[in-house]
Design a protein around this nucleic acid. Sequence first.
DNA 1: ACCGGGATGTTCT
DNA 2: GAACATCCCGGTG
Length: 198
Amino acid sequence: MNERMVARSFYARDPLLVAPELLNKVLLTPRGAGRIVEVEAYDGPNDPGSHAFRGPTPRTRVMFGPPGHLYVYFTYGMHWCANIVCRTEGEPGAVLIRALAPLRGLEAMRAARTAARRDRDLCNGPAKLCQALGIAGTDDGTDIAGPHSPMRVVDDGVRPPAEPMNGERIGLSRGIELPWRWYVAGDPNVSRTNVPRR
DNA sequence: ACCGGGATGTTCT
DNA sequence: GAACATCCCGGTG
């Protein structure tokens, strides 16, 4: 199947526009690949739920850089989560990848995620997919939009859903009222469906 | 199925 | 010292 790489200009926009358009695109890594089925937008200085809300810190500096790079952060003392940086240098914004439908590298994913009892548990959460694909702190700042990036997003012809599911983001204490989570209706790899929609 | 609590350590107040 | 863009396990129904 024809795979077209998502260009940097795609990411150089408002994360609220980028997020739903990432649905059904494919995240490619050296370890495996998966179709993006759930995302959340984080709107930088306008968003109390964003790590960038209070300005840059050593941890969040990548989010203030150019678009098309990975912002990978460590949380709860054991988990990594991965975002794609949006907008442009000095104007932070990001899209958190929350779930993938595994496509390739299933054996490696199973080996990396011994707690997963079924394949749908391999990548159905932001930290799970990082564990499955081996994404960690060393990947913070990785360019995923360069001509030879080993990690990148491709469009394989499956279009984003015309009417994605949409609702409040998960796990936040601030900015929870903003409906900036999108996911593919009916996909079994979505982390949670039992939450408000609109 | 649903719910509650513990794990585990970096980041920022 | 508290918060944390989470996950896993063991309880109950």
